[in-house]
């Protein structure tokens, strides 16, 4: 059971996430607030309700990943 399998490889990829995520904390907070606001307000959570905010977070995340590669 040692060696490479689907768990090891996904784990390898996940290992870089925290660092990349930390560089986008502002975008993450904006998206998080958008989703969390629906748990208390009248607005019901629907698909793509916070699409704009998520796109910003994802763009930041991808850019951070690219910078790391260079």
């Amino acid at each position: 059971m040692t060696g490479r399998n689907v768990w090891s490889s996904s784990r390898e990829r996940m290992r870089r996430f925290p660092e990349l995520f930390a560089r986008c904390s502002a975008e993450a907070a904006v998206y998080g607030k958008c989703v969390v606001s629906t748990t208390s307000g009248k607005q019901e959570l629907q698909k793509d309700l916070c699409l704009k905010e998520f796109e910003a977070l994802k763009t930041c995340f991808i850019n951070a990943a690219k910078q790391r590669m260079k």
């Binding site: 904390s25 993450a28 907070a29 998206y31 998080g32 969390v36 998520f54 977070l57 994802k58």
Partner: peptide, 14 residues
């Protein structure tokens, strides 16, 4: 992967 990223942001905020 998008969902994991979204969940991490929500977890931190909540």
């Amino acid at each position: 992967r998008d969902t994991i990223l979204a969940a991490a942001a929500i977890y931190k905020e909540m």
